[in-house]
Simulated scan of single mutants.
Amino acid sequence: MMAVMKIKVEYPFKPTTNQYLLPGQFLAGLMGWVGGNPPVAEDLVGCKIVEQGSVHIKTIRETGLDGKILGHRPLALDEIEADYFRSQESFDGCMLLKGFKELRPITREE
């Protein structure tokens, strides 16, 4: 059995890689929220996703609030689920993803 390492995260932080980012850490995304100050988790209660997509780590590091991840709010608390995506533009070897989780090879119809 493989041990799972828990890492204590202090917010805000500036990520150097997307490898350890979690769904629900907020900065990049389009939500139905407007405010005069950067959001905290409580500000996002009941907010819905307007549009989902994926961004390069540079989008986080080089824009917004000094490129920092501001906090975390588990998506399930607001009944938010990841959308379905394709793993790449070309069909050869393309996978169907839910968020970044690979589900299976994608069909031409999808």
Rank of each mutant, 00 (worst) to 15 (best):
Q88W: 03
Y11K: 01
G71Q: 03
V50N: 06
M1K: 13
R108V: 04
V40D: 02
H72T: 04
S54H: 09
Q19R: 11
L21K: 06
K98N: 10
S54A: 07
P39S: 03
V9K: 15
A28N: 08
G71E: 01
G46Q: 04
S54R: 06
L21H: 12
D83S: 15
E81W: 02
P23I: 09
L44K: 01
A76M: 13
G24N: 07
D78Y: 01
Q19V: 07
G36S: 12
A76P: 11
V55P: 05
H56G: 05
K6A: 14
L103H: 03
E62A: 08
I60Q: 08
D78S: 09
L21W: 10
L97P: 00
Y84K: 03
L75C: 14
L21T: 08
K101N: 11
E62D: 15
G71M: 00
T63N: 13
N37S: 09
P39K: 08
K48L: 02
E109Q: 10
L44G: 01
I7H: 08
T17I: 12
L75Y: 06
E89A: 05
M1E: 11
L70Q: 12
L75H: 08
Y20D: 13
G99R: 10
D43K: 06
K6L: 14
A41T: 09
M2G: 09
G35A: 09
N37R: 14
F85V: 01
V4G: 09
L44V: 01
E10T: 15
R108S: 02
T107S: 10
R73T: 06
G67I: 10
E51V: 07
G93K: 00
E81Q: 12
D83R: 14
P74E: 14
R108I: 04
L97D: 00
V4K: 07
F100Y: 05
K6W: 13
G93E: 02
A82C: 15
G99T: 13
R104G: 09
T63P: 04
G29F: 02
Q25F: 04
T59V: 15
R86L: 00
G67A: 11
P23Y: 13
P15D: 03
K14F: 10
R73I: 06
G46V: 05
K68P: 01
E81P: 01
A28R: 10
F100P: 02
K48D: 04
I49K: 09
T17L: 10
A3T: 09
L65N: 14
F91M: 06
N37H: 13
H72R: 05
L97T: 00
A41N: 00
R61E: 05
F13D: 07
G64S: 12
L30G: 12
P12V: 06
E79I: 11
F85M: 01
E51I: 01
M1S: 14
P105D: 03
A28H: 02
S87L: 00
